[in-house]
Design a protein around this nucleic acid. Structure first.
Lengths: 231, 231
DNA sequence: GCGAAACTGTCACATCCCTGTCACGGAACC
DNA sequence: GGTTCCGTGACAGGGATGTGACAGTTTCGC
């Protein structure tokens, strides 16, 4: 089982190899480049789940890479951890404010870096960290493929499972039907928009057993969202 | 204008005061307790947006607090940053694996901590890091499609939502009915000018619940504007 | 393999909320 | 006081969503 795709931008070959070895041992798929421009290219072609970015690299600066990754729509949400030799506070702050999610100063231990990557991934994509997804009294175990509400197991069809999973990974956020079709069904499939409604209904029916309050909010002319006061 | 609620668990009074001052200066609302058990109580009563947790505190350990916060459904998704004097790798890794989102070793600069908090919040709750449109005691979260006044959620129809959003994006500015029709309804639609009045009225009605002061100012023979002393 | 059960995507219909418009009355301006 | 502009209540129509049913397909147990 793969833990996630990781893009490593590091121009020190020794360090790059070391990190690559460690992450691959932890079942990450690692793409590596020493070059900032190539990193941007790779990132936009197949967006990774996380980017490890050295501050001092050849070509454009790490900070600039960070900025551009954030600006491109297809990579705007990819978390970034910056690696750096500088320990100066001003740089750290600048890195974090540019959109980096974390900041690790050399020398660091690979094990700690792996743990940090997991921590960030757990937050961004809980499923990739093999965790329990929770929201209110609802919980989903990705590994065992089980969903519970208030401790009671709920049977879900495959589509409803993926749909709920998507909502749990982005709680509170509103998704249009088209967006849901892309994310849950697949970008290439040609399916009627209204089909989403039907599956939302089936999902609601399943998780609201026993008169539990609604968790899926309908946002008229916008889509659906997971929400506490859902009705 | 508040940036978010922060729960500080720290038993060193001097450090606690320092951090509290810094975060309050940055418009965070800070709740503070030196005690682990009380922290859990506070967290479950009114879940904060983020928790700053000292590793070494009186009573139960920070690690245990972390674990329990994660286990409780109502706080399972609250991010945690651990503060610690220990620099040992094993502890860092253990903290991150227990569910902490970040880990800062003393001594650290308050400014850096603030930046880290912002980085984590940006990831967890985009709404708290700039996706939030605010004006007076009114706030609109674009992503979750929610509008609140004085903390209370307000239901809005699609058109009223777009209308309010337009005002919030250009606070204080006066827009003619024709201009609003262009921006909010669409340049191509052919709609009666006076229709704007009706939607302004509906919007006012919605956001002025409970005798709250008027926020939309009528500018005779010119149009409408978002304004503090709106009437 | 084979039959049963479960799942999926659509449709038609029902329902509800939203929407644009109007007419009337009141307020502001000169 | 007259004129212009704005606020308001009502209302019919339409658009968006909820719902039940159904045929085709896949999956599963045997």
């Amino acid at each position: 089982m793969m833990n996630g795709k990781l893009l490593l931008v590091e121009d020190d070959p020794a360090l790059a190899d070391l990190l690559k070895w460690h992450f691959e041992r932890e079942d990450f798929h690692v793409a590596h480049t020493p070059d900032g421009d190539e990193a941007l290219l790779l990132a936009s072609e197949t967006p990774p789940d996380i980017i490890l970015l050295d501050w001092m690299i050849e070509g454009i600066s790490g900070l600039e890479v960070c900025r551009r990754v954030r600006r491109a729509p297809e990579t705007a949400n990819v978390p970034i951890i910056m690696l750096t030799g500088r320990g100066e506070e001003a740089d750290r702050v600048r890195g974090l404010e540019t959109g980096a999610d974390d900041y690790v100063t050399k020398p660091f231990s690979p094990r700690e870096l792996v743990a940090r990557v997991r921590a960030v991934l757990r937050r961004v994509r809980p499923a990739l960290a093999g965790e329990l997804l929770k929201f209110a009294d609802l919980e989903m175990d990705i590994v065992s493929h089980k969903v519970k509400r208030a401790g009671k197991t709920i049977p879900l069809g495959p589509t409803e499972f993926r749909l709920l999973r998507h909502f749990l990974e982005h709680p509170g956020r509103v998704f249009s039907r088209a967006r849901l079709l892309d994310s849950v069904w697949g970008r290439d499939r040609d399916i009627e928009l209204r089909t989403v409604d039907v599956h939302i209904r089936r999902l609601r029916q399943a998780i609201n057993i026993g008169g539990k309050p609604e968790l899926i909010r309908t946002v008229r002319s916008a889509g659906y969202a997971l929400d506490d006061d859902g009705g």
